[in-house]
Amino acid sequence: MRVIVVLGHVLDPRGIAVNRRAGRVFINRREYILQPADRCALEAALRIKDEMPAEVVVLPRSPLPDDDVLRQALATGADRAVYLAGDGLAAADDAAMARLLAAAVERLGGADLILTGATTLDTGQGQLGLRLAEALGWPHVADAWALKTSDDRLEVVRQEGAGYAVLEAALPVMVTVAPGALEPRYPDGARLINIYRGQGEVAAALETWDAADLVDADALQPLLERRGQEFPPERERGVRASGGLEEMARSAADALRRQVRV
């Protein structure tokens, strides 16, 4: 059984400060972490590997400046990772990445299951997994909380209103995993060191493919264009609710409703 995990990186939110008055994002510490939802997807794949013989292959979800997250995934227990590089790749958006990844999956010889995060921590976009399913012509299950596989079937638990439901699908299928669904494991220290030293079989498990070999340059043209940033008004702290108890309670409830959208 082959499980492909598509994962990406994100700027650690603890290292950035948003200054609303200046209208700028200050990056104090440029440190990248694995997308939390992708990390859960990797954990789901590794749990399948714990249960049955399976090969876990890792692919990047977006253009990456370096292969650190792939090395991290290998150290955590993945068997093989493919770093995608290429000139036209840097600007690729989710639509282009879906085409590129579909071609990469074909070149890997297909898979039984593809897992990725249901959403990204920074931009909150969840389209990549579903776009990839469409590009491959596979069915999908979005926002999975738990997975169970047998040889040719998959059982997935997903949220349904206030409760959870079990879905069943025949393989191959694409599943996006909800952030926080599983408690992810940590990378193995010795494997991590070996990967960076280029020693042992883990180091050999990392390959680099050129995007130009997989798809035409046209297919990598992004559809979306960034048009800038917008900052919410500066927070006005120290506001007190006025009136009697009931009036205060009502204004607090209104404020909470606006924030939580209950």
Binding site: P139, H140, V141, A146, E155, V157, E160, G163, Y164, A165, V166, L167, E168, A169, A170, V173
Partner: peptide, 8 residues
């Protein structure tokens, strides 16, 4: 392709 089995 994806069938609902029941509540979890």
């Amino acid at each position: 392709a994806v069938r609902r089995v029941g509540e979890a």
